[in-house]
Structures are given as structure tokens and as C-alpha cells.
Amino acid sequence: MGTRAGLGLPDTIVACLFDLDGVITKTAVVHAAAWRETFDAFLRDRDGPGFRPFTQEDYDRYVDGRPRADGVRSFLASRGITLPEGTDGDAPREASVRGLGNRKNALLLAKIKAGGVEAYEGSLRYLDAVRSAGLRTAVVSSSTNCRDVLRAVGAEDRFDVRIDGVVAARRGLPGKPRPDTFLAAAADLGAEPAGSAVFEDALAGMDAGRSGHFGYVVGVDRVGQAQALRAHGADTVVRDLAELETRA
């Protein structure tokens, strides 16, 4: 199979679908920290000083890449905990699925405001190369803050389509590990799944790429989980998107 010159992709690919956190921007670690603070505070109040903390493995397996409420439910289920669903307006102190999700989002926004947002320079260069080659691009993220983050790093105009948490909720699209958001992005770009490449750092995103039968799935390994990314469906794994240009 041939490759598109300079991009390290099969020559059948006409559209590229990029996750945001951990692929384009350096926000995955901030998300993980906000989740850790949220769940550790909840577990400490529930179980006392001897509580079992939220770990990086918990983040990778149950939370990363999923819509916020799905992440809460998934992690709590792993600990045998059930909470009322609550409503989107629940205060961050509420012991409900939506309350915990709102607590995490408040912490995330505070961390972003305090430390700013950065993009991976290799990813921005790769995006520019993809667009220069005439491929269509979409950002696919479960985050409801996606547009603000893209604007903060000056990358909003690098994408033809945006399917984020806001758009997914409006369209009723289930989040990762289901492939629906990626499929919607490909459709909005006028591309078939087989002609689209998925770029993801989350295991849930790998599952979405595999189940959606996309033409190529790139795992981006920022935290040393290359083997797991491959096990979940990555066709190739890179530490930075700039590496794909050297593989062409």
C-alpha cells in the first residue's frame, strides 16, 4: 500500500480526524489531575483516610476520552459505587454523577486559567502539512471546552469540522468508545470511514477507531502505553505526530 508523501498515511486516506486532549493540546495531564482531585475528595469523604486513591490506570481505563458523565459512571462502577444521576445544574459539591462531573469541570477550568493552554508544536506542524496536502480535517473531542481551547492555542482554523461534547449532546451522539462522533465527523467532511484516519491517545478512542472500521488508526503515546494502544486497535503508534512525517 502506498503512502501519501510526507504524511506517513495510506494513500487511500482523504480525511483526518483528530482527538484534542493529548493529541493536539497538552491538556490530557490537566484533565487527569482534575479527575484525581475530584475522585480522591469524594472517596476520602465516603471511605475516610484509608480510601483507595484514583490512579493513572483508573484514568486510562475508565475516564480518558469518554464524555464527562460516562467517565464518572465508569470509574464509580469499577469501585462498586452507584450514585444518583442528578442534573446538569447540580452544584459541584453534590454527590451525584452530574455533581462530580461539574466538580471536575470547575477544577479543570481553574487549572487551565492558572497555567494556560499549550499545543504540541509537532501536531500543529503535522496539521499544516495535512491541510497543505489537500486532506480534510476534523477535531473530535468529548470536551465541552474544545472550542475555547482551540481558540486559546490559535488552532481553530486548522479544522474544517468540529464534533465536541457540545455538538454531540445537540445531535444525541454517544461518546467514545462508541465510534459515533468520529463517524459524524467523517460524514460532515464528506468522507467514508475507510478513507479516514483517526488520531487518538486514549484507549477509548482506539476502541472507537477499531469498531468504526476507519481506514487507519494512529495511537499517540504520551504516557508510555504503546502496547495498550496497539492492543486496542492502533495501526501504528507514535510519541508525536511529527514522527509520521519521518516515516513517509
Rank of each mutant, 00 (worst) to 15 (best):
A152P: 05
A133Q: 11
G175K: 09
G195S: 15
V166Y: 00
R158D: 05
A202R: 02
A169G: 01
A186P: 08
T181Q: 13
I163H: 07
E200T: 14
A169F: 01
T181E: 02
V139A: 09
D164V: 05
D148F: 07
V167E: 13
R171N: 00
P174G: 00
D201W: 04
K176W: 06
V153K: 08
K176Y: 00
P177I: 01
R171Y: 01
R158S: 12
A197K: 08
S132K: 15
G165V: 12
T144I: 12
D188L: 15
R178T: 12
A185F: 02
G172T: 01
L183F: 09
G165N: 04
R158H: 15
F159R: 09
V161S: 10
F182Y: 15
A168T: 02
A184W: 10
T181W: 06
L189Y: 08
T181A: 14
C146R: 04
A155F: 10
E192M: 05
D164Y: 00
A184S: 12
T181V: 15
G165S: 04
E200W: 01
L150C: 11
A133F: 08
S132N: 12
T144F: 01
I163Y: 02
G195P: 00
V139M: 05
I163T: 06
S196H: 11
R147E: 15
R171F: 01
A152C: 09
T144L: 05
D157Q: 15
S132R: 15
F182A: 06
A185C: 08
S143C: 08
R151G: 15
G165R: 11
D160E: 14
L135V: 04
S142A: 15
V140K: 09
V140A: 04
V139H: 07
T137W: 10
S143F: 02
R151M: 07
L173M: 00
A138T: 03
G175C: 03
V161C: 06
A138V: 10
E156G: 04
L135C: 10
G195T: 08
E200C: 02
E156I: 13
F159L: 11
L189P: 07
T137M: 11
G134V: 04
R162Y: 00
L173A: 03
V167A: 13
D160R: 06
I163L: 05
V149E: 12
A185L: 10
E192D: 14
A202K: 11
A133P: 09
K176P: 00
G190L: 13
K176S: 08
G165C: 01
L189D: 06
G172S: 00
L183R: 13
P177F: 07
V161E: 03
D188Q: 14
K176T: 07
D148L: 11
V139I: 14
V139K: 02
G154S: 13
R170G: 01
D164H: 02
A184N: 05
C146V: 07
S141M: 08
F199S: 06
A197D: 03
R178H: 14
A133I: 08
S196C: 12
T181C: 13
A184C: 12
